[in-house]
Design a binder for these strands. Structure first.
Lengths: 233, 233
DNA sequence: CGCCAGGTTGATTGCTGTCAACGCAAGTGG
DNA sequence: CCACTTGCGTTGACAGCAATCAACCTGGCG
């Protein structure tokens, strides 16, 4: 559990320009609402407006909802990242924690109004939006055109980059999300995800440790199965 | 075919703030490269850097490429819209025209550098990125969790909003893209798209006129089949 | 040590993909 | 002016991958 001061300082360091005056910083600070949530909790955000959420610690998922209880995990986010949470449109969105998390919640409109005065803050927001857009487009390709094996391989390669740690020369991932979350992120069922894990394990490409640990034994082979474009157009 | 002056004026009116000085406008103008392309042409953009493309006239598609020749249409764009075209990453992206189009191409980095001085330009860019992100997330839900019927219904409802025209009290859409483009956008095959059109036609929900015309006879029924979230969470 | 949510494995179904033929409209050239 | 071609869309038969339904297993926690 982090203090509000710790959280905001971290946020300011990463997402606000260094040159910002004390008064401006205080104004941003007054917009930040700290939320300290346990594992597997849906944040009750006002669905009528957009929000900006900074992840101080923990891990979260942004989920889109369709009819008949079908869910699609639109994005996972990890510490130090900033997330744009859209208001309800044709579908609604919820933000949930994957593990105990410390978050800072901003009202998007208020934040953007304050940022109006400072180009550097806007640049930072723009970069956040662009990298989310980029990941979302990659996800579209995955969901629209890849097989189950390729989806899981792409997922693991992506997670390796974002939360993987080196251990004895190999990449190790401690997945904060359940098989259901992975399935909802990849547009598959939990059973299919499980079977794909089994296939990769039997091929000796990954090793699973308990329910959440994954050791990437052969990253090359994993990438080869991810359906990436191999050669220039 | 529009003149460069016409195109840039339109762009400036929509995406640059009114208060911008003549010298600043001229600098943005000097970054704009006019491209006037025939139907079904892939723009040869440098894949090493991001671009910003303004659609003056026509219609375009942004396509992501996976291995084995699989393509995913990531976004369609129509006149007056601004598109962020990403550099090649794990997959590559190409921008192609759907019909004869007039475009203005900017190098993203140069544009953003110029915009550094003006918060209003950045706000505008940020809004562009946010609306693309929003559409991309909706697409993730469609690709990950919807059935073929729901995908086509969602697609038609979306297109109705963007390029539909009222005619005799009904919405009429003149689709600029082929069945293949629709399939590549919805993560389906052309045969499945065709069959779904037949189903909606047989149900009396839409009427097709030639290859590109679609008359939405019963918009309510179409929306009901789009898989939208019907009730509040 | 025993519970039990979460994960794995197996049998079967079904939606969409694949392969193939046909239809139709627009364009071309004799 | 019409036969031929060509590109796109539609329809049909069949196959296959992932979903569904159903046990069974496991490891993390009290």
């Amino acid at each position: 559990m982090m203090t509000f001061a710790e959280q905001f300082d971290r946020f300011a360091q990463l997402h606000l320009p260094a040159h910002l005056g004390d008064d401006a910083i205080l104004r941003f600070r007054s917009l930040a609402r700290p939320v300290d949530a346990a594992r597997d909790v849906a944040l009750g955000l006002d669905e009528g407006s957009d929000h900006l959420v900074f992840v101080s610690s923990g891990a979260i998922k942004l989920v889109a909802h369709a009819s008949a209880g079908r869910n699609q995990v639109v994005a996972f986010h990890f510490p130090d990242e900033l997330v744009v949470v859209p208001a309800r449109a044709e579908h609604s969105y919820t933000l949930s924690t994957l593990r105990k998390s410390d978050l800072l919640v901003f009202d998007y409109a208020s934040f953007a109004d304050l940022a109006r005065s400072d180009p550097a803050v806007l640049r930072s927001l723009l970069d956040t939006a662009r990298s989310s857009l980029s990941r979302s487009r990659e996800k579209s390709l995955t969901l629209g055109r890849k097989t189950a094996t390729e989806r899981l391989a792409s997922f693991l390669v992506g997670m390796a980059h974002r939360i993987g740690v080196e251990r004895e020369g190999l990449t190790f991932i401690d997945l904060p999300m359940s098989r259901r979350d992975i399935a909802d992120s990849l547009g598959l069922t939990i059973e299919t995800v499980s079977r794909q894990f089994t296939i990769l394990r039997d091929l000796g490409i990954v090793r699973t440790v308990g329910k959440s640990g994954v050791q990437l034994v052969d990253l090359r082979a994993l990438e080869a199965r991810a359906g990436y474009l191999t050669e220039a157009a």
